[in-house]
Write a protein that binds this DNA or RNA. Structure first.
Length: 310
DNA sequence: AGAATAACCTGTCTGC
DNA sequence: TGCAGACAGGTTATTC
């Protein structure tokens, strides 16, 4: 559920707490949260290695690219005895997956049912607090990762985000150049928007909303769209996500909340997502849905006609 | 190259 | 009321 606007809202909530704080200890309540894809291969020593490594880590920032988030740690503040050779340093990586949450707590707050990991933190002024990673479905992930050079810019990113393209809010994001690249590919525009190696941060909700805003059919092939239409769609994605950030993100239930457990309200502004069978707010035509690029997609057949030619 | 599938999970909702 | 089945905001590996 969390796409770029939701992750950004979490990042903004976390930043003032985390930056300048030191990690005192980490408790992993469910080892599966350390896995990325093949959860079964989380080896027995992974939890011990992680919990032994992070104490002492001094948080220097709260960063995000697309849906990936990480907290860079001060050089030398982790692995006190034998620091592995990592040129650019380490970071605590946090990916929310489908149902992940980062919550700020004090030690005596009741522990939520789906809490998978608890970081005991101490702020610069000595105040203790907890960063808890809550995740119902365990598609999320936490880890201690090296910082590496990311795609498309000299920026450092956590290793798990090494193959993630810049998101539409980064300086290195080039909508026109990207539109030209996509013109040379033969894929549904929706598949391109969802491909985090092309442009990051866009998920199923904002892909559909961006396409609706731009008046482009989700199944339209990029090689059959004018470059300007592709570029407009990318600008639309940025614009719709910017509005969602302002609204605190989109949530349909309690699965997406900010660090204080509060929901966003952008769902009230959605144009087509989840509105199959309802009249289009722009023209009154009935919104349709079907599977495109492997995901349930929503569009207005009148506002988003299939593009056959230029 | 790109599409389709399955896998990783838990919870909720729908229909019989 | 119970139960099977479908479905959910993401990512990755594999197969065709």
């Amino acid at each position: 559920m969390p796409e770029l606007p939701e992750v950004e809202h979490v990042r903004r909530g976390l930043e003032p707490w985390a930056v300048g704080s030191r990690i005192e200890s980490l408790r992993v309540l469910d080892p599966r949260i350390l896995g990325t894809t093949s959860k079964r291969t989380v080896d027995a020593t992974a939890v011990d290695r992680l919990t032994a490594s992070v104490p002492g880590g001094l948080v220097e920032g709260a960063c995000r690219r697309g849906k990936f988030m990480w907290l860079p740690l001060a050089t030398g503040s982790v692995f006190p005895d034998s620091a592995p050779e990592v040129p650019a340093g380490w970071a605590v990586a946090l990916h929310l997956g489908m149902s992940g949450q980062v919550r700020i707590h004090t030690a005596d707050d009741a522990v939520h049912r789906h809490t998978r990991a608890v970081f005991d933190m101490r702020s610069a002024d000595g105040a203790p607090w907890q960063m808890r990673f809550v995740d119902q479905r365990i598609f999320g992930h936490i880890g201690l990762e090296p910082l590496v050079t990311g795609l498309g810019s000299p920026r450092l990113v956590a290793a798990s985000a090494a193959r993630i393209a810049p998101d539409p809010f980064e300086d290195g994001f080039d909508a026109e150049g990207l539109a030209r690249t996509l013109k040379g590919r033969r894929t549904a525009i929706k598949a391109a928007l969802l491909d985090q190696g092309v442009v990051s941060g866009i998920g199923n909700i904002y892909a559909d909303e961006a396409l609706f805003a731009a008046g482009v059919h989700p199944a339209a092939r990029t090689d059959r769209l004018r470059i300007s239409r592709i570029e407009n769609t990318l600008h639309a994605a940025r614009a719709v996500m910017a509005r969602a950030i302002e609204a605190g993100g989109t949530s349909f239930d309690e699965l997406y909340v900010n660090v204080n457990g509060e929901s966003g309200y952008f769902d009230r502004s959605l144009g087509v997502y989840g509105k199959a069978g309802s009249p289009c707010t722009r023209c009154g035509e009935t919104v349709r849905s079907s599977t495109i690029a492997g995901r349930t997609s929503h569009w207005c057949p009148s506002c988003q006609k299939p593009q056959r030619r230029y």
